[in-house]
Design a protein around this nucleic acid. Sequence first.
DNA 1: TTGAAAGCGGTACCAA
DNA 2: TTGGTACCGCTTTCAA
Lengths: 343, 343
Amino acid sequence: MAVINNRPKPVTIHEVAAQAGVSIATVSRALSGSTTVASPTRERVLAAVEQLRFRPSRLGQSLAEGRHAANGIVFPDLSGPYYAEVVLGYEEVAAELGSSVLILATHGRPEPTRRVLELARRVDGMVLMGRTVPDEVVSQLTETGIPVVLLARPAVGESDTVNVDNEHGTRALVKHLARHGYQRFAFVGDPAESPDVAGRYAAFRASLLEAGRRPPREPLRCAFDVSSGRRAALRALRRALRPEVLVCGNDETALGALEAAAELGLSVPGDVAVTGWDDVMAARYAGLTTVRQPMRQLGATAARWLQERIAGHGEPVRRRVLQTQLVVRSSCGTHDHESEEPR
Amino acid sequence: MAVINNRPKPVTIHEVAAQAGVSIATVSRALSGSTTVASPTRERVLAAVEQLRFRPSRLGQSLAEGRHAANGIVFPDLSGPYYAEVVLGYEEVAAELGSSVLILATHGRPEPTRRVLELARRVDGMVLMGRTVPDEVVSQLTETGIPVVLLARPAVGESDTVNVDNEHGTRALVKHLARHGYQRFAFVGDPAESPDVAGRYAAFRASLLEAGRRPPREPLRCAFDVSSGRRAALRALRRALRPEVLVCGNDETALGALEAAAELGLSVPGDVAVTGWDDVMAARYAGLTTVRQPMRQLGATAARWLQERIAGHGEPVRRRVLQTQLVVRSSCGTHDHESEEPR
DNA sequence: TTGAAAGCGGTACCAA
DNA sequence: TTGGTACCGCTTTCAA
């Protein structure tokens, strides 16, 4: 137990007050600028602050003010470009609006609920992404009075919700694939893994049915990473009746599918077409047809709404569904007009 | 000013105490488990806690305990896979060790110093990455008693420092390129942009000189993104005496260089070779020769050390330089033995 | 085993 | 314009 903790203890407002020969109330006023302080007094205070290198304790301040001036974002994971971009968009706006940003990755960790509730004790509000906590926890938070904005997940109660349009994005994709003339579609990805994938699979299935086709087989369930995608795609591609298209839940899965095809000596898109979701940087170099979603904007919108909720204006519940963009590259088939790819 | 802030005010320890018919001291003890509390009393307290859904205020707790139980990481940006991976590695370990994690991206924002000092008021310690704040701020923080771990930047004073071995990584790369027989090397990237790039350029220059070559020209300065890399590479490739190799400061720059070459109708590696740094996911699909660095491990090590500093054991200063790995792909030239690429 | 009370470091109201 | 002081919500001595 030989803790040799020799940190200088922080300067407090009392020492500044003593040094300047005023009361702590005056120091507080001089620094906040709220009330008027006589110029000479202010000078003395600021000099003392300067000299003692006084930085007010955030804890004292927050306790007195009754707010943290911080908010948080909870997401499954930060690996892979998708979440990183969303978090970046979030941080950017939150910082702009004067809040500190706490992050919490739940994926693969025990007790996500406990961690989220712990986070809730240090913030004025939080953004919850995807499949991080059960609905009950969302309700519990809002009942406790903590504003919550949901991101990339279904609405719960009266919380604001921001989502991407999985429905239309998928339909546009399937429609494009249908024009290529493909008949046998397979979906790679686990709807249970994330609400987004669930939405994409549902739309995939629905649009095939509406086109008068047979219902697709069960999705080839797999996690979000490349190697899981590869394994799942191998299963599909080894079937007697090989699918003509692998519609993948996200880009990393699709990149794994490309690997699988290569491994089996199948050409893409000749023997099998492959599509993804997200349009991560690698997708471009892999020639992957995919659906781009506005990742930063998802985070930015959530941050802005959260701040407004915290400010406490009584806006009605807001739900936003951001649009996607089909990005056609080579992996879905050959095209006459070179490059539908947007700049 | 019509703020309709109707949040239920949080349950405090006093209400729990009243409900359980004990003092707040007893409630605190019953919850912390530190001191002994008679079983029946504890039962009553826990029942009250349950019934009132009491969650202790983090602010009160931290103020009394004299610690935040949180720490922070400051980085230039979160876009691009590099920082995201480092932050992920950091968050993972920090959370494991029981700290909440605050993030702060400085890049392109005004007043990075003010923001960092503001962050310093809410954490027990922090990790500072790359070119985020000037050395004086680092000193100022440590003098104030806030433990700091530096990441991907030169040491300052007595702070722990974690870096990647830019020196050896670059030498291995240049050596490999020299074996290809290339004579005219150009460096793409701005040493002023980050300490890492500075280190890479220095090693690049040194190893060429040591090999008895003429000193290379000035680096083609550019920012870290693909399009900046593209523009810089265009400048180089349009020179009368075209370089045979573009050694780029990071992968995104290199991907831009690949674009530039394609634009000019130059084949890679036939007409010009290109290399990167980081081994981001896209590098693989672009066939980019690069140097892999252990990004997560950088973050993880920093988090662990920071925690130890905060715990206050008086270890001597630590400096770690993590090793890199050359990843040879097609962009640097043709190879006999297919794929030196590690799995 | 429990309670009273003194902090922890601020903010803001009320008087002077 | 300033000072005194009552909080904010918790932890932790010190006594009982």
